[in-house]
Design a protein around this nucleic acid. Structure first.
Length: 175
DNA sequence: AAGACGATCCTG
DNA sequence: AGGATCGTCTTT
């Protein structure tokens, strides 16, 4: 029996990616695995990617097959394969056309976007997954964390200033 | 049709 | 410090 607390609704996601990125800290990510085992994970680290003008955001390349979901309204999953090995988990944010998203970089016990993707057994079938209606991946509300830390995003040196130094990476204190 | 390059991680 | 590994995008 799955006990579902308050699932985060569409309104939560249809806002600014930077606000959502730090509000997601401490929230509970729920995964129902094939076979039925269900696990919940507290989010510990995130990064915001803010639309077509943000040269670190994949959507800055325009609307392509890969980035199309980012142009949808917030509340969908954006996954992509990096280095041929790791599925990266993002949630689309903002209203239609904002082309923004939040990357989940850390879960409690699973530090690093590649490692958490492996733990969650992500694959390309999660592209476009609806967090409102999905029966295998969603988010539940939880109290805000008392303190968080912000710093520049990782691995986006190529985007140049000012994007490479925007403090849009958020982590719970002590992580 | 072919080449370059990652929002990473692991090993030596 | 360097290799794994492959989908996407750019260039021919």
């Amino acid at each position: 029996m799955i006990s579902e607390n308050s699932r985060l609704g569409a309104d939560f996601f249809r806002r600014d990616a930077v606000v959502i990125a730090h509000e997601l800290l401490g929230k509970k990510l729920v995964r129902v695995f094939p076979g039925g085992q269900t696990k919940g994970y507290r989010i510990t680290e995130t990064e915001a990617y803010c639309g077509q003008e943000d040269l670190a955001c994949h959507a800055s390349k325009g609307l392509t097959k890969r980035t199309a979901v980012m142009f949808e309204p917030g509340g969908l999953v954006y996954v992509y394969l990096i280095y041929g090995q790791y599925w990266m988990l993002n949630f689309v944010t903002g209203v239609a056309g904002d082309a923004s998203a939040v990357l989940i970089r850390g879960l409690e016990g699973f530090d690093g976007p590649g490692k958490l993707g492996r733990e969650l057994q992500l694959d390309g079938s999660f592209y476009g997954e609806n967090l409102q209606t999905s029966t295998r991946l969603w988010l539940e509300n939880a109290p805000p964390v008392p303190e968080y830390h912000s710093s520049p995003r990782i691995g986006i040196h190529y985007s140049g200033e000012p994007w490479s130094s925007k403090p849009w990476r958020f982590s719970v204190q002590g992580q």
